[in-house]
């Protein structure tokens, strides 16, 4: 089960609150005011780091980026500003990010699985490697298929059995997503019809499964872990279930059904403009060093667990590893192009 850090027992006092309010107001206001003053110092970062999140606030990317930034500040002394740009399966966020000044002060916090698939399938003009480089991987989690607490299906076998009688409806966040690919591959392997129903985000997808609007949901496994007893994980698209406690000790899909579906994971990674990568190598090095230091900091493990994510999903990977994850996802997207684009 998920571990939560204990809430501070005592309330902060009135003075504390008003003091904090004043400090935050001053920080918010002077964040802009004092920025050029810092720029004169010729240091990096000379202003706040802008973190672009190509999904909405309150989602998994937001949760993980904030957990990272809460510790990153100890290793890269600056403020982090979050901006949310959801839309068109992440395309809006990526295109907006590409329009930002490529000076290494703007970074994108990517969910490699769905977003790289989107870049591969949609006409964005943005190419992984040529326009954007993922410089540090932070977390990796497998995809999972799960049901709500009142679902009639208690095991993956029962779900598949029903699938042999009628098409199975599967709530997914969006079509270009590793979880969607996992379900399509499962359907292909067992000869059952899978109807993917995209709800446009993790939260509405979860709600559809809990309220039994659909037969099951397929999402990154953390979504179901965070939901705790509101979800029952039936199977994991991985070679091994590394977080059995939070996932109802669910089997892997391949072990339960005798299939050989490749492991489907999605990794969180920090991305940067290729132009910034080439023009400011010393800044990129500084970013990489501070990111690596953050990942090695025990406080990061605490922050991740505090956000409800099992620390076993922390998966530090350098640029080579992050780019290899992205490349593998591109290959997978090409294989299922027709089903994912409706063409």
């Amino acid at each position: 089960m998920t571990k939560f850090t204990k809430r501070t027992p005592a309330l902060i006092g009135r003075r504390g609150f008003l003091g904090a309010a004043g400090a935050v107001a001053a920080a918010a206001g002077t964040g802009g005011l004092f920025a050029p003053g810092r720029a004169l110092a010729q240091e990096f970062p000379s202003r706040n780091i802008d973190i672009i999140i190509p999904t909405g606030e309150g989602g998994g990317a937001d949760r993980d980026a904030r957990a990272f930034a809460s510790v990153w500040g100890n290793h890269l002394p600056t403020n982090f500003q979050f901006g949310y740009y959801p839309g068109a399966a992440g395309q809006v966020g990526y295109e907006f990010y590409m329009s930002r000044e490529p000076d290494a002060h703007s970074l994108i916090f990517a969910n490699l699985g769905p977003e790289v698939i989107m870049l591969a399938l949609q006409d964005t003009g943005i190419s992984v490697g040529e326009d954007i480089v993922y410089i540090q991987q932070t977390l990796s989690e497998p995809m999972a298929v799960w049901v709500g607490p009142s679902s009639p299906f208690r095991t993956l076998e029962e779900l598949v059995e029903e699938g042999r009688r009628r098409p199975l409806t599967v709530a997914v966040s969006r079509l270009p997503h590793p979880a969607s690919i996992g379900m399509l591959a499962l359907g292909e392997a067992l000869g059952i019809e899978i109807v993917l129903v995209p709800y446009g985000g993790g939260n509405p997808t979860a709600m559809a499964a809990i309220t039994l609007e659909v037969d099951c949901a397929a999402l990154p496994v953390t979504n179901s872990i965070v939901l705790d007893d509101q979800s029952l994980v039936l199977g994991i698209f991985a070679d091994e279930n590394v977080a059995p406690d939070g996932t109802d000790n669910a089997p892997t899909v391949n072990a339960a059904l005798g299939t050989s579906i490749p492991a489907l994971t999605s990794s969180r990674a920090w991305g940067i403009h290729r132009a910034a990568y080439d023009a400011y190598p010393e800044r990129v090095t500084r970013l990489k060093e501070s990111m690596a230091a953050t990942l090695a900091d025990p406080a990061y493990v605490e922050a991740v667990e505090g956000a409800g994510v099992p620390s076993v999903f922390i998966d530090p990977g350098d640029e080579a590893q992050a780019m290899a994850s992205a490349q593998a996802t591109i290959e997978m997207a090409r294989r299922y192009r027709d089903l994912l684009t409706g063409s």
């Binding site: 939560f4 606030e57 309150g58 989602g59 505090g306």
Partner: peptide, 21 residues
């Protein structure tokens, strides 16, 4: 445990940050 709207989603961020279920 699932936010029904955008304001509730931001509240969830705060709960998550404080480690509150």
């Amino acid at each position: 445990g699932v936010p029904g709207g955008s304001t509730a989603a931001v509240m969830m961020v705060v709960l998550q940050f404080h480690g509150v279920p």
